[in-house]
Amino acid sequence: MKKFSKIARDGIWQQNPALVQLLGLCPLLAVSNSFVTAFSLGIVTVLVLTISNVVISIIRLILNEDLSLTTQITVLATCLILSDIALQAWYFELHHRIGLFVALIVTNCSLLSRAELSSSSNPIISSAIDGLMMGLGFFWVIVLMGTIREGLGSGTLFSNMHMLLGPAGKNLEITFSHNGFLLLVLPPGAFLSLGFLIALKNFLFDNRD
C-alpha cells in the first residue's frame, strides 16, 4: 500500500509529467485555451495512459525484450486510434478542435518512458495505477490551465460545453466579463501561464522542504 501511495504522489505532484518532467507540452499548450478542450484532452490522456500501461505490461510477460519499444509504440498508437475514432463518431465538433493533438499524444515522451519504467519491474496492477496517476497529474495541470486561460482570457467559463455534453451543455456557460485579457487565449499566453504555474510550483516546493 505504501508503494501505491508513493506512485500516486510521484505522478500527481513530485514527478508531475507536465510541471516537472515537461513532457507532452504540445498538447498541453495548444489545447488549453478553453476549458472544454482541455478537459476532454485530459480525459483522453488518462484513459490512454492507463489502458496502454496495462496492455503493455501484459504483453511484456510473453515478449522478447528487444521488441519492447516497437510494441509500446504500436500499443499506444492503437489506443490513440481507437480514441480518435470514438471522438470522431460521438463528438465530431470536438474532434475537429483537438483531433490533431490526440494523435500527437503518441510522441509524448512521457508515455513512452513511463510505460517502459513501470512495466519492466512492476506487476500489472501497479503499472495500471502508475498510468492512472501520471494521467491524473497531466489532467489537473491541463484543466487548471484551461480554466485560467479561458477565465482570464475571454472572461467566460465552461463555454461551448455542448461539444461534450450535447444540447444540455449550452446553459452551463458562465460569463463574468465581456472583455478578457486576449493575450492569454493566444499562443504566447500558453507559454506565459505555464511559466508562471511552474514558478508557483517551485515556490510551494521550496517552502515545504
Binding site: L22, L183, L186, P187, P188, G189, A190, F191, L192, L194, G195, F196, I198, A199, L200, N202, F203, D206
Partner: peptide, 21 residues
Amino acid sequence: KVFRGAAINMITAGLLSLAFM
C-alpha cells in the same frame, strides 16, 4: 530563484511567441 530553470524558459518562449504574433 523560483523562476530559474523551466519557468524562465517558458516565459522566454512566450515572449518569442509574442514577437512572432
